[in-house]
Amino acid sequence: MSELTSQAIDLLKQLIETQSFSSEEDQTAQLIKTWLENHDVETKQTDYNVWAINKYFNESKPTILLNSHHDTVKPNKAYTRDPFKATVEGDKLYGLGSNDAGGCLVSLLATFVHFYDHKDLKYNLVIVASAEEESSGDKGLVSMKTVIPHIDVAIVGEPTQMNLAVSEKGLVVFDAIVKGTASHAAHPNENNAIYNCIKVLDWFKNYKFEKTSKSLGDVKMTVTQIKAGVQHNAVPAQVELVVDVRVNDAYSNEEIADLLQKESPCDSITPRGLKLNSSSIPMDHDIVKAGIAIGRGTYGSPTLSDQSVLTCPSVKLGPGLSQRSHTADEFIYVSEIEEGIEIYREILERIL
């Protein structure tokens, strides 16, 4: 495993130095495909998703998906380093995508290669290095569900400090409209859309969803954007709001949409999409029990990942720290990758 770990870290350095914004992952897909093939893995590619199954895949056995993504967000303007330069200083490996989610991806790739040609496993293994995670794109993991074999459970690689996120909030974004009467600012107007918006904003601020979750807590609803008016002397006819709703596992996205459409004081409120669902895994699942047995913690995650497009039980687990994601001068500790590969291996050895 020591040599495989070193090779995985070298791959991460190559990935960092290769631009891979969402929908532009062609070059990193080729790097990953070549790396797997150099380890004698029969590898396939669908769009920019690179995937493989274990050598002795048996359709009669249940299947575990190992998944992480190789796309990145664009670097923000606060970077003081070259985001496309993989630099190691002490234990820190700097570079765009190092923490989110390159460290997770190469750790899962190394783990898959380790088990690839093992015979008589209790589970099949499928690895998917997916595209378009950061943009929730249609050609990412969601498109692979009809391509890869049926999946019974998934490990999704995102930075969790190698603790098990046994549940994850879903996301629904709404576009809402508050109407009024357009008028000249110099004339009286008792139906000013901007003033009408005050009580609407207050409603969103104070609304409480009834059902809570043991691992995910309450549904979190936040007004994140507001738009109205084009000039100083004209009262607009309407105000447009964007509302971000993080959904716990006590509700479906459809239920949240129905509730807001019935109860919100907006003139209209429309979900942009309902596909990014909450996810969870039973606490008595073999993967969870294996993680707990080696001392890993469990928690509910407020952040979204490719778990949202899966319908099977799934756990989010990976090296790195979520709070470093999308930050300037992003980095991951090399020791976190080394530990991540070892923990992935220990967990899978206990159930395979």
Rank of each mutant, 00 (worst) to 15 (best):
Y299P: 02
S280P: 03
H285M: 06
W35H: 07
D82F: 02
V172P: 01
S22V: 00
E37F: 03
T28R: 08
N196I: 08
P271I: 06
V113M: 09
K262S: 14
K55L: 07
P319M: 06
G137T: 09
N277K: 15
Y123N: 07
S23I: 11
T80C: 02
V73I: 15
T327L: 02
G291V: 07
E210C: 05
Q14E: 14
S252L: 07
L36Q: 04
K205L: 12
N233H: 12
A129S: 15
D175C: 01
I256G: 03
Q7P: 02
S167G: 13
A110S: 08
D258L: 13
A86Q: 06
Q27T: 03
A257L: 05
A29K: 03
K316F: 00
D286F: 01
G320C: 05
S183D: 12
V147C: 10
I148K: 09
D202H: 15
G102W: 11
L36P: 00
E240Q: 11
V166M: 03
I155M: 14
V242R: 10
L36S: 01
Y94Q: 03
K145S: 07
C312K: 02
A185E: 09
A52H: 11
T80W: 01
I198Q: 14
D258F: 07
P159Q: 02
L109E: 10
F57P: 04
I198L: 14
V173R: 12
T222A: 13
K169R: 15
N58M: 01
P159V: 11
T224V: 14
Y123Q: 02
A110K: 03
K227F: 05
A165V: 01
Q7R: 12
R324D: 09
R345E: 15
E263S: 11
V41C: 08
N253W: 06
D117Q: 14
E37W: 03
N192G: 10
F57D: 08
A101N: 12
